[in-house]
């Protein structure tokens, strides 16, 4: 079992979802999966090395990601209310 490859696979799943899925919910999920993949290594290494510091890093890094995701959710609700869109990649097509 190779943990780095495991988390890389998870990261790849997240990036895949972000690039291919057009649904807003899926975009948010992909972002969460990417965040989970990113923070997973900290826990794994912390446990393998017997060093608690990794868990501290994990909590700090994950809470930054989560709080910004919360803003994205708020922004999406507003975007849905004012622009009537449900697909963030539609937005980027409005220009160029």
């Amino acid at each position: 079992m190779e943990y780095i490859i495991l988390s890389m696979t998870l990261l790849a799943i997240g990036v895949y979802g972000l690039l291919t899925k057009r649904n807003l919910l899926k975009t948010l999920m992909s972002i969460e999966i990417i965040a989970a993949a990113a923070s997973m290594n900290f826990v794994v290494f912390s446990s393998l090395l017997g060093d608690r510091m990794g868990q501290v890093f994990f909590i700090l890094a994950l809470s930054v990601d989560t709080s910004i995701t919360a803003v994205v959710v708020a922004l999406l609700l507003v975007a849905n209310r004012e622009l009537k869109v449900s697909d963030i990649w539609d937005l980027s097509k409005l220009k160029e």
Binding site: I4, I31, A35, S39, F45, L48, G54, F57
Partner: peptide
């Protein structure tokens, strides 16, 4: 997420 991922490997 990319940055945290890189940092976690560096930490490891």
């Amino acid at each position: 997420a990319f940055i945290v991922y890189g940092l976690s490997i560096i930490y490891g």
